[in-house]
């Protein structure tokens, strides 16, 4: 399922909104999660899961082509943990 298929499916369930509005709203949902994480906040969606930022430490690596040693800077990655309700539904 892609984002446009998700928008389509939701529009069919709630037909008092236009597809255009639904598109703006669905985008706004994912944008707000992204923005919260960019601010360093955690996002908890009960029944679905939670998103937070994990930090990868700086480490030494090697350029695989030249063998030259390089420093890989620390970086942040978005991390998702499935919520209990969804985990149970996936396994029932």
């Amino acid at each position: 399922m892609t984002k446009s298929e998700l928008i389509e499916a939701v529009s069919q369930k709630l037909n008092n909104f236009t597809k255009k509005d639904m598109e703006l709203i669905v985008n706004s949902i994912f944008e707000s999660i992204k923005d919260a994480l960019a601010r360093g906040e955690k996002v908890e969606i009960r029944g679905f899961g939670s998103f937070r930022v994990k930090e990868r430490r700086e480490r030494n690596g090697r350029n695989p082509r030249t063998g030259e040693e390089i420093k890989i800077e620390s970086k942040k990655i978005p991390f998702f943990r499935v919520g209990k309700e969804l985990r149970d539904r996936l396994n029932k």
């Binding site: 399922m1 892609t2 984002k3 998700l6 499916a9 939701v10 369930k13 669905v26 949902i29 994912f30 999660i33 992204k34 969606i45 029944g47 679905f48 309700e85 969804l86 539904r89 996936l90």
Partner: peptide, 20 residues
């Protein structure tokens, strides 16, 4: 939106949200 996503995942189908 959340319920639709859960139903989709329950069927074992993946969800691709571009830009996310």
């Amino acid at each position: 939106v959340l319920e639709t996503m859960k139903e989709t995942l329950e069927r074992g189908e993946k969800i691709k949200i571009s830009g996310f």
